[in-house]
């Protein structure tokens, strides 16, 4: 069983949801980012979603836009993102999923990128601006190199599209719980149980994780009752943003935050 499937199987056996943490690779710089990833990975994270910083993150809210900007300004490149993954693999076998934009995957050849990412230790690929209709090359390359694919379902996705999306996904389905961009919200979207059930009816054995706007432990518990995984992004990235002037505080702040969220995934 691959690392992604193992993580979901383990959570299921413990009657809880997976804790999926999002951090931007290289935010605010490579070394701090490694310690930031270590901090969350040592505090209950089951799947690490690594944002690959892009100049034009059109699906992201301000928190993640600024994180990507910090990473790029600190000198993150494709090569350094792969280096970050290799360094994480020295201390952790938690599945890592790239959360990225298609031009970064496409720029030097899709198969080449997938192969390099896989060699570095990446387990899955989620490309925000790549609907399944355009994903043939990515799906084929991921199949060839044993990389799992992750695709998004949105509240606006009609049932007729679900088979197209679930057919392209091999890792899990990411349900975006609301229309909009990433970011902290006061409340969790109301209709998550129905949406997850709607996807599961078509997705069969694929896990369904829920993200976008989930930012407190109470939110996590609410969503964990229905989903196989809960994604926390901006709320973690804010721990970095709030400690930029004293970067040694970032890892402890993230550790405490992650530990708190991890208490919320039980059912």
């Amino acid at each position: 069983m691959d690392r992604i499937a193992q993580a979901f199987a383990r959570a299921r056996s413990e009657n809880r949801a997976c804790f999926v943490a999002y951090l931007c690779a290289g935010d605010p710089d490579l070394e701090t980012s490694i310690s930031a990833c270590r901090a969350v990975l040592e505090n209950g994270v089951d799947v690490l979603e690594l944002g690959v910083p892009f100049s034009d993150p059109l699906a992201d809210g301000l928190t993640n836009q600024l994180a990507a900007q910090r990473a790029l300004e600190s000198g993150m490149t494709a090569a350094r993102v792969f280096e970050l993954v290799r360094r994480i693999r020295e201390f952790s076998q938690v599945p890592i999923v790239f959360y990225t934009y298609y031009n970064l995957v496409f720029a030097n050849g899709v198969e080449n990128y997938v192969r390099l990412a896989r060699e570095a230790g990446v387990d899955g690929l989620l490309t925000l601006d790549l609907p399944p209709e355009e994903a043939g090359e990515v799906v084929a390359a991921c199949g060839k190199h044993d990389m799992k694919t992750v695709f998004i379902v949105a509240p606006t996705t009609p049932n007729a599209r679900l088979p197209i999306i679930t057919a392209a996904a091999t890792g899990f389905i990411y349900y975006v719980s609301r229309e909009g961009v990433t970011g902290v919200r006061d409340q969790v979207a109301a209709n998550i149980p129905e949406a997850v059930a709607r996807i599961k009816a078509v997705a069969k054995n694929l896990p369904v994780v829920v993200g976008f706007g989930i930012s407190t432990r109470a939110h996590v518990t609410e969503v964990a009752a229905h989903a196989d995984g809960v994604v926390i992004g901006s709320a973690l990235v804010n721990c970095i943003r709030d400690n930029l002037s004293q970067r040694e505080r970032i890892a402890p702040a993230l550790a405490a935050k992650a530990a708190d969220f991890a208490l919320g995934v039980g059912r």
């Binding site: 059109l58 699906a59 298609y102 925000l128 601006d129 790549l130 609907p131 209709e133 355009e134 695709f151 998004i152 379902v153 949105a154 509240p155 606006t156 996705t157 009609p158 599209r161 999306i165 975006v176 229309e179 909009g180």
Partner: peptide, 20 residues
């Protein structure tokens, strides 16, 4: 039908916009 002009064009957007 998919909006392609040869290799160019297409639809590269987040899923939320596909139906719109």
């Amino acid at each position: 039908a998919g909006g392609h002009f040869g290799v160019y064009g297409g639809v590269y957007v987040p899923e939320t916009l596909m139906t719109a």
